[in-house]
Amino acid sequence: MTASVTKRTAKHTAPKRIQITPQDAYIARLAAYAIVLSVLESGIPSPIPGVKPGLANIVTLIALERMGWKAAAWVSILRILGASIVLGGIFSPGFALSLAGGVLSLLVLALCQFLPRRHFGMVSISLLSALAHTAGQLLLARLWLIPHDGIIYLIPLLSGMALVFGFVNGVIAERLLRQYPAQAPASIANAHTQQTH
């Protein structure tokens, strides 16, 4: 009887393995980088609350370029969830704003895939995505948090900042992508060992 019990538990506890593809691992790595950037960035004092460089967007852009829109969406959503868990603001209005910005910027990234890439680089994509991020936040703020047209006064400031940081982030993403040419996701996971020689 005892034998049969152990047999049964052994059968039940045998873990059902989730298949982790190299792509999954790479997405997780990029999301981790993005969370670190978000957390670091939250430590930078900002004269205006809500104006942040959005450095984590660089990682989303790299995911988009290397692995396509789906991976970029994963990285972006994981980053928003992860960063708000780490910073302690999950399901707060700030989290909702971040999510609204992230979702609209992902929609624009989906459209950006139709840009002729011969003539449009990461800078264009970064600019459009940064503006979409700001637009998403402003829209949610207008509809939900501050239902008053006074928020229109903020548009020039916030969208101007989006242009500046979108440009800078785009240049950084372009640089990084050129400096480290594409590898297969599996070999990227071993990048450390390859770079040592």
Partner: peptide, 8 residues
């Protein structure tokens, strides 16, 4: 600046 394409 050289990283920019004309579309950018």
């Amino acid at each position: 600046w050289r990283l920019l394409k004309w579309g950018d």
